[in-house]
Write a protein that binds this DNA or RNA. Structure first.
Lengths: 141, 141
DNA sequence: GCATTATGATTGAATATGTCAATGATCGTG
DNA sequence: CACGATCATTGACATATTCAATCATAATGC
């Protein structure tokens, strides 16, 4: 099977690598009550970006209505807070609470450990190369 | 937003690059009545691998029951045929029909064009590098 | 100022995907 | 040939995705 032409297809490789990474990520985050989706939201709510839900949807390539559910869940669990944007009160800015930060940092350890394990085959130089290449694909233009 | 720590997270980059690639792929394949899933099945049914449905499920990281639906659809449209494996009659070997081959080759042109467009930012040397790195992630061990 | 148009969040409905356990056919082994 | 294992299939269930409609707020043009 691995001799198939598909194996040289970037989009197929991307899909398969992503499937593995997603499964490993979700498994590693489960003990922290997160999944890669909610982990990503939390990550963005951590730094001083102060993203609106619209921003989150665009960045994570989700439908805005999916972000509603994601933020609802995190908010119910006290990890995140919706704040009205003073500059534009249509926007809900999503910010991590103190517990959210704590949860994130411990989850991040687990996530990183899982990544290291999953990517044990490649050197850290290769990892950086890969990250750079993926960035140009992930953020064209 | 792009300054977020997530941007340096391989699994996030993988997810986002894959989302873009998937959307572009599905769009490009739509005019051929395919999606990237069915395109992949067709690709594997093309060469002389003679994959069983189980093989397809494992390779494409799908549940075997999802492959049933995928192959049902392709078979209904005459692009693919189920053959009993003479060596083990539990296996359904999936093979492309003549129309399936025709459909695939024209779809492949569209898929490749879409990829080139999507990956216009990177050189072909970088593309090869990326493919190689992704292969080690996509097929560990 | 006020009507018009556009944008963000939210909801609910429709559709699609994913997961799982049960079943019948076939295989391999003792 | 009985046993347990594997493959394809089905149906039930849970989860995700997409979409249109709604309400609140903003920005624009008059």
């Amino acid at each position: 099977m691995r001799g198939s032409g598909l194996t040289r297809d970037l989009s197929f490789l991307l899909a398969r690598a992503n499937a593995l990474s997603l499964a490993a990520g979700n498994a590693a985050l489960a003990e922290h009550g997160l999944r890669v989706r909610s982990y990503s939201v939390l990550a963005l709510a951590m730094d001083d970006i102060r993203p609106s839900q619209r921003d989150l949807a665009a960045f994570l390539r989700l439908n805005p209505s999916q972000v509603v559910a994601l933020v609802d869940d995190l908010e119910d669990r006290g990890l995140v807070r919706r704040e009205a944007d003073p500059a534009d009160r249509r926007n809900n800015v999503v910010v991590a609470t103190a517990e959210g930060r704590d949860c994130f940092v411990s989850a991040q350890l687990a996530a990183r450990a899982a990544e290291r394990e999953l990517h044990g085959q490649i050197s850290s130089r290769q990892r950086d190369q890969l990250a750079e290449l993926l960035q140009t694909l992930a953020f064209p233009g």
